[in-house]
Amino acid sequence: MRKNCCLSKPWRKIKKCYITRISLLCASLFLVNVPVFAAEKIDANEKAQQENKAKLENVQKAIAKQESNIFDTNKKRSTLEKELKRDDMAIAKVARAINNIEKQLSERQQQINVLAKQKQQLEQEKLKQETLLAKQLRSAYTTGQHDYLKLLLNQEQSEKIQRTVSYYHYLNKARIEEIENYQATIAQLLQVSTEHQEQIDQLEQLKIHQNQQAQLLKSTKAKRSKTLANLSKQLLSSQQQLAKLKSEENNLNAALQKLSELIQAEINLTGLSKLKRKLSWPVKGRMLHRFGSRKQGYLTWKGMLISAPIGRQVHSIHNGTILFSDWLKGYGLLTVIDHGNGYMSLYAHNQTLLKSVGDRVETGEPIALVGQSGGQEQSGLYFEIRHRGKAVNPKLWCK
């Protein structure tokens, strides 16, 4: 046992030494590889940073490109909207001219009808006078067989001569009067006939002018359609569309606020407070959008959009004074009427406006013609009622 124990001590030393050497060798190998691992890790971090930097640059370029596209789109839309305004104003000018021509045509036709009736009456009167003159001439011819000079020289029947002379004077006077009346009738008939023909000629000229204006209106509308088509190509996102509508609504509110400050209330304008359910709609048509319904995002309709054909007359719902009569972005050709006591009515998207600022209008009076100005694809009237600047439901007033 001792021998074995003695032999085991050197073995233990050798084993311990061996283990120590192996440990030192492993440690040295680990220490040698540490810089290699660290370098690889640094390289990986640098590569990741470069990739992230490249991605960030790409995102920034994409954002810049998108912003540039939005800027270009807004710039193009602004240019096209200005062109649309010019087109709407040109259409309004031609439509108003056509409306005036139609009024003149109606007046000329009425005058022609009156003159035609006068001409017919004068021709009947002329025929009666001719018949009466013919009878008088036959009577004169019948009695004229007794020589007038012989009757004067005949002294035997003085009383009979006196009666005959008086009779001749009576007949002659009556005949002269009828001839004068006949001549007056002929002169009046000639004058009426001449005026009648002049009115007919003017009517034909107005019709020619109306056709020319109609052709001009057609070409102007074609140009507007082209502008709208180009405008529709400039697509807007939902957010941009919402911002656009909000901007247009703010413009309207600002304009109304400015008008409210300029209003000088008239004593005879009593407002609409006592007229609920008593007013007529400004135009007959189908309701496309109702008050309070959703418009875009959180925006709602502040009035009614009524479908109606182009050219139909728009009537004032109540008497008042024209406060605004011009083109406004998003609303086209717009008329605003002050009814007193803070009440206003608005009429938008018209083809043309028939009244100017300051004009007094009565209930039911035509103030505009239905159109689709302001970029509308469908013809109709946008109608609002406001009280002290706040939009109220028109259905509470109109029946």
Results as ranks from 00 to 15, higher is better:
residue 7 L to A: 08
residue 13 K to V: 15
residue 13 K to H: 10
residue 15 K to L: 14
residue 17 C to V: 12
residue 18 Y to L: 13
residue 22 I to V: 15
residue 24 L to G: 12
residue 25 L to D: 13
residue 28 S to N: 12
residue 29 L to Q: 13
residue 32 V to D: 11
residue 35 P to R: 09
residue 35 P to M: 14
residue 47 K to C: 09
residue 54 A to L: 13
residue 54 A to Q: 11
residue 55 K to L: 14
residue 57 E to P: 09
residue 62 A to M: 11
residue 68 S to H: 15
residue 77 R to G: 02
residue 78 S to D: 12
residue 79 T to A: 12
residue 83 E to A: 10
residue 88 D to Q: 03
residue 89 M to V: 09
residue 90 A to Y: 03
residue 90 A to K: 02
residue 93 K to C: 06
residue 95 A to S: 07
residue 97 A to V: 04
residue 101 I to F: 04
residue 114 V to S: 14
residue 115 L to C: 02
residue 115 L to V: 00
residue 120 Q to I: 06
residue 121 Q to D: 13
residue 126 K to N: 10
residue 128 K to G: 10
residue 138 R to Q: 14
residue 140 A to T: 09
residue 145 Q to K: 15
residue 151 L to V: 10
residue 152 L to D: 03
residue 155 Q to W: 07
residue 159 E to Q: 15
residue 175 R to W: 09
residue 176 I to S: 09
residue 179 I to F: 10
residue 181 N to S: 14
residue 181 N to Q: 11
residue 181 N to K: 11
residue 182 Y to H: 06
residue 182 Y to S: 05
residue 184 A to W: 02
residue 184 A to I: 07
residue 188 Q to L: 07
residue 191 Q to P: 01
residue 192 V to Y: 02
residue 193 S to D: 06
residue 198 E to N: 14
residue 198 E to M: 10
residue 199 Q to N: 08
residue 200 I to C: 05
residue 200 I to V: 13
residue 201 D to I: 08
residue 204 E to K: 12
residue 205 Q to G: 09
residue 207 K to Y: 10
residue 207 K to E: 13
residue 207 K to M: 11
residue 214 A to C: 11
residue 217 L to F: 07
residue 221 K to C: 09
residue 222 A to L: 14
residue 222 A to R: 12
residue 223 K to N: 15
residue 230 N to A: 15
residue 234 Q to R: 15
residue 239 Q to V: 14
residue 240 Q to C: 04
residue 245 L to T: 07
residue 247 S to G: 06
residue 248 E to D: 11
residue 250 N to Y: 05
residue 251 N to H: 03
residue 255 A to K: 07
residue 256 L to G: 00
residue 259 L to Y: 05
residue 260 S to F: 05
residue 263 I to S: 01
residue 264 Q to S: 13
residue 265 A to H: 08
residue 266 E to Y: 04
residue 276 K to V: 04
residue 282 P to F: 02
residue 283 V to A: 02
residue 284 K to Y: 05
residue 288 L to W: 02
residue 289 H to C: 04
residue 293 S to A: 12
residue 295 K to A: 05
residue 303 G to V: 02
residue 309 P to I: 08
residue 313 Q to W: 06
residue 314 V to D: 01
residue 315 H to I: 07
residue 316 S to Q: 01
residue 317 I to S: 03
residue 322 I to L: 04
residue 322 I to P: 00
residue 327 W to K: 03
residue 329 K to N: 11
residue 330 G to T: 01
residue 337 I to F: 00
residue 338 D to S: 07
residue 344 M to Y: 05
residue 353 L to R: 03
residue 353 L to H: 00
residue 362 E to Q: 09
residue 364 G to P: 02
residue 364 G to T: 01
residue 379 S to T: 04
residue 384 E to G: 00
residue 385 I to E: 01
residue 386 R to H: 04
residue 393 N to H: 08
residue 394 P to Y: 00
residue 395 K to L: 10
residue 398 C to S: 05
residue 399 K to W: 12
